[in-house]
Amino acid sequence: MNGGLNGTGRRLIGIFDLIGSRVMEFFDQAGYTVLLLVRAFYYLKDAPSKAREIFTQMYFAGVKTLVVCSLVGVFTGMILALQTGIELQNFGMQYQIGHLIIASMTREMGPFMAAIIITASVGSAMAAEIGTMKVYDEIDALEMMSISPVKFLVMPRVVALAAMLPVVSIYIIVLACLGGAVVANSILNVSFNVYMKHLYKGIHFKPIYVGLLKAFVFGLIISGVSCAYGLRATSGELGVGHATRSSVVASFLMVLIIGYFITAIFYG
């Protein structure tokens, strides 16, 4: 009986210990990421000298993800049109589908889809690349040359992603609208002209600038989180794998959480 109680107590302490250490770890990493972003902002003055690296990273985030962004954009629009169009058809309001697609894509789906694609393809690669540099002493070598890794590696990536996320978002929104038009025309019998007329009606300034702001913030989050995990990678290849996986999970979570708060601030 006594032993059982002790065992339960030990398990409880173990659970609280685990939760406590995870919470501490989260705040430690979050604090490190915020400080890293602040330091990256400080080095913005050196951005012109890092133009080549910034454009390279922009190329990775934009051109290299073009195919997947195109597919995601078109099919998101088609799914949205199909799912909501069938419901609207029950009320004879399927002609409103253009309005609905542009509203949901600019407010939420466009920046969110862009963030998911960039996290999975570019953010993970960033964490792995910087993590590998860390375990192979390249970061230490930079320190020894008095070259700040934040200026050399982090700032160009932050600038590139913060600039490219809004662009990728707009691209996805445009393609989603085209995908929606195909479904509206072929399945819901809404003519292209009617679709476009209602789509234009759905374009408002506020959802666009809030959507672009979200995309910009997501760019900061993904680059900051990915670089932070990469710079803190330890224990060889295993550590790089762990840093990459953790950076993707943390980026997704932060995009969702911060995305909600931006929505709440502007629409709440």
Binding site: M133, Y136, D137, E138, D140, A141, M144
Partner: peptide
């Protein structure tokens, strides 16, 4: 410092 891996970029 000459690192073991060379630490070239």
């Amino acid at each position: 410092v000459l690192f073991q891996s060379g630490a070239l970029i």
